[in-house]
Design a protein around this nucleic acid. Structure first.
Lengths: 262, 262
DNA sequence: TATTTCTTCTTTCAATGGCCAGCAAGGCAA
DNA sequence: TTGCCTTGCTGGCCATTGAAAGAAGAAATA
């Protein structure tokens, strides 16, 4: 493993867990604790973390994402499954919003065979993916391009979204927790996803199983704010009860689900 | 195996694995590590990768992933020259608008070394080109994506442009005629370029020599509506007189031009 | 509170291995 | 042939890593 990979992974862990422990990382990556400390030192110097006794915590005001890419599309198979499920819910003529996430790109790939769709997105990658379909109406939010992420954020983008109302919004998040709800790594993304949810009749949360029981940085909304949660694995009993209590439908591959949900 | 073949294979591996390791590649291709390093150096110089200790990681956002878009890009050398001239007019801290044209992409490439630039554009290709610069403010107009062109048009885009005022707007056109002025192939593009011109103090028209004495479909504006015309060849006497009469400066490679124009 | 004990941190040193520059050999086209 | 490009090699340099030892911090106990 390249050193830079390790540091990226540490940063990723830092963003989902908000803190890391030297001894754990040393064990996980099978390198000495000194090496981990040096990694954390570097992350601190770059403004991503604050070292503490025994580990490090994420620097709150740093809304920077992964600096040197390698945002490795983790769990591609799972995201494909999610995209397929969501694809089966989209009907010809639908108007949808797609956020900037890898899952959104998979969803875009999956619905290219539909007719006469209107898509509103803040993701440049989704735009490129859909550039060659014909007969669709593809709208971009515009706004400020977030450094290193090929996505638009900011007031301009939110304002544009709020002038529309669509049938379905498909959003994702970095962490899902029964109490804290949906959380994401940056304030600006969270705000934008919130706006998308507010602008749609059916609010679909696309979230792969690795995000369950994680809490990220900023709150997007509570679980009952969405209409439906689409994931790639059957959730635990505990989570099923949570979804039941919150009045949210959870869809996963292999389940039998009612047609009217579509 | 040819060197270029090897480099292509490395690039492929880079795109699937997101990273490559020098020692592995050296073994796989049965060449020395020095050769691999030189390959990676080249890939880095071409913008596909970022070298790190022990290997390299992919540089996402590189326009390598652009789909189809078989833009035939005529007169590349000429457009490069135009881009270079325009690049020399941009100063650190400038705020500029760039339209959706191949020349605009070349301009974007040419000014990446500047500091603290604000760019407003309706071109997805320009956005991608600039995705990896840091410290800039990159704004997208948003709006409707024009089918088959990776650019935004429409009311939304124009409205966004008109809420800003910048120092320089760089626009192009499909035809230039002494009487009909600047013309373009589509109403929506013409309208948008007009808005860009109205929103800038210095209006720079980038137009290669093949567009002279051509008339396209819709009028963008008259020749005297722009401040400066940048082209790739010295215009004829007739055209020089036109520019003189209209009070427009014409800049081309090899001419001696006053510093205050910059 | 003071003291002890355990953990973690910092500093220093050495080893490993990758990196770079320069050189020379071979291949290829003009 | 000459010139240019690619490749491999060498030697010095530098980045990364781990070990060790002492300092500093946290926690537990008296």
């Amino acid at each position: 493993m390249l050193a830079i990979e390790r540091r990226n992974k540490i940063l990723e862990k830092l963003q989902t867990d908000k803190k890391v422990v030297v001894s754990e990382l040393s064990h996980d990556f099978d390198v000495s604790e000194e090496t981990i400390r040096r990694d954390l030192e570097k992350l601190e110097k770059d403004g991503y973390a604050t070292k503490t006794y025994g580990g490090a915590v994420i620097k709150e005001n740093s809304n920077a994402e992964l600096p040197f890419v390698v945002r490795k599309n983790t769990n591609v198979a799972g995201k494909q499954q999610i995209a397929k499920l969501i694809g089966s819910m989209i009907r010809d003529g639908d108007q949808i919003m797609l956020d900037a996430s890898s899952t959104a790109v998979f969803v875009a790939q999956n619905i290219k065979n539909k007719k006469n769709i209107t898509v509103i997105t803040n993701s440049v990658e989704v735009l490129i993916e859909l550039a060659d379909v014909s007969g669709w109406k593809i709208l971009s939010t515009g706004g400020t391009m977030r450094e290193g992420s090929l996505a638009f954020v900011g007031h301009q983008a939110e304002k544009m979204l709020s002038t529309f109302h669509v049938g379905k919004a498909i959003v994702s998040c970095k962490g899902l927790d029964p109490v804290r709800g949906l959380t994401d790594a940056s304030e600006s993304f969270a705000q934008l996803k919130k706006t998308m949810i507010d602008s749609a009749s059916k609010k679909i949360l696309a979230v792969d199983s690795s995000k369950f029981d994680k809490i990220s940085f900023t709150e997007i909304g509570k679980i009952h704010d969405v209409t439906m949660i689409v994931t790639d694995k059957e959730p635990s009993e505990k989570w099923k009860q949570v979804f039941n209590a919150e009045g949210v439908v959870c869809v996963y591959p292999g389940m039998t689900w009612k047609t009217e949900l579509q």
